[in-house]
Amino acid sequence: MSIQHFRVALIPFFAAFCLPVFAHPETLVKVKDAEDQLGARVGYIELDLNSGKILESFRPEERFPMMSTFKVLLCGAVLSRVDAGQEQLGRRIHYSQNDLVEYSPVTEKHLTDGMTVRELCSAAITMSDNTAANLLLTTIGGPKELTAFLHNMGDHVTRLDRWEPELNEAIPNDERDTTMPAAMATTLRKLLTGELLTLASRQQLIDWMEADKVAGPLLRSALPAGWFIADKSGAGERGSRGIIAALGPDGKPSRIVVIYTTGSQATMDERNRQIAEIGASLIKHW
């Protein structure tokens, strides 16, 4: 067993022997301040990774656009098919120029040779490549099948209805392509620590998230040296922004954090800054 596999296998073990965790309302004060600064709703939840206990939450059962955070769930569904012998990570998928959609920095470079399922998941999570996500959605049967996968996990809230990039439209009061912070946090925890996926697939999923290259201005910008984070960000229309993450000190994750916002007129930089400040408060009061 590799060191990384050992780390993920012992996530519940280490967490069980940690000192009790206590909620700190100071972080919620910052979440509410972010709402004021952005002029928009902000949803927040913080779960203990081992027990699933909610440590703090704000608007945990209000719907927010998922945006690209759905790509972690998508690759979880792909990995479940791999575990069941219905898919192979090494299978190569070929596609054409007509398949390319807006923001496809990886797939646009491989029109000639195609990409493997493993490479597509890596591109979808680490670079948020939209064509990679659409190609992977095709392998599982489309958005409705991802929703069905989530329902089978016990998540009857999260739903995907459309493809990239239309799913980022974020129309107010439109339930399409949305989740709730509580539902997303619980589902992410199941994917990373539950028995739904094999140990190898859980490790692969967290490795992809740990290698995320496009979430630097968010929670990662607030992390002290030595902290662990595996995350996936999302951005959408109407001032929408979000991030889902597993993080913790001492090089291992111990909490799940989900943050979503929508309806702001603020710039992307300002949305990023507010999420980073929430992260800084979380870490300060850990």
Results as ranks from 00 to 15, higher is better:
K30A: 12
S57Y: 11
L197I: 08
P143N: 04
D33F: 03
K232G: 00
K252D: 09
K252M: 13
W208R: 01
G43V: 00
A246P: 00
F14A: 10
D36E: 14
S104Q: 02
E277P: 02
V8R: 12
A230P: 00
T126A: 10
S2F: 11
T147I: 08
R91I: 04
A77H: 10
D212G: 07
I229G: 02
W208H: 03
R238P: 09
R7G: 11
Y260G: 00
N98R: 15
G141M: 06
A148Q: 14
E119Q: 15
F228E: 04
T178N: 03
L223V: 13
G52C: 04
P172I: 12
A245Y: 01
R273A: 13
T193H: 14
D129V: 00
D161C: 06
L219Q: 04
D177Q: 01
S233R: 01
A132S: 08
S68Q: 00
P224A: 05
N152E: 15
A185D: 00
C121N: 02
Q274T: 15
T138R: 15
Q204C: 14
L205N: 01
A148L: 14
A215C: 04
D33S: 10
A245Q: 01
A170M: 07
V42L: 13
A123S: 09
P65W: 01
K32L: 11
R202E: 09
R59K: 09
V42F: 14
D250Y: 12
N152H: 15
K53R: 13
V101L: 08
G248K: 02
A200Q: 15
F14P: 02
R271D: 06
K71R: 01
K213E: 09
R59L: 04
L199K: 11
E108K: 11
A15L: 14
I45K: 01
E108N: 10
V214R: 07
K32A: 14
F149V: 09
P12R: 05
M1R: 01
S2M: 12
G43E: 00
T131H: 04
S80T: 12
D207N: 11
G194R: 09
D83W: 02
T147Q: 09
H285R: 11
R238C: 14
N98T: 15
A182F: 15
N272M: 03
G43Y: 00
T158D: 01
S221K: 13
L223H: 03
P172S: 12
W208F: 07
D113V: 09
V101D: 12
T262P: 01
A266Y: 08
G226W: 06
S104P: 02
E87F: 08
L196H: 15
E195K: 11
L73S: 08
I275P: 00
T187N: 11
P249Q: 09
R241H: 04
T186I: 15
R255K: 12
G226I: 03
F149M: 11
L19C: 15
V21A: 15
A40I: 04
W163P: 10
E145A: 14
W208E: 03
I244N: 02
V78S: 03
R220P: 02
A148V: 13
A225K: 15
K232A: 01
R202S: 13
K30D: 05
L146P: 00
K213H: 12
A170N: 09
L137F: 09
G39I: 09
I206Y: 15
K252C: 12
G234S: 09
P25Q: 13
E175C: 12
D177S: 02
A280C: 11
E210Y: 10
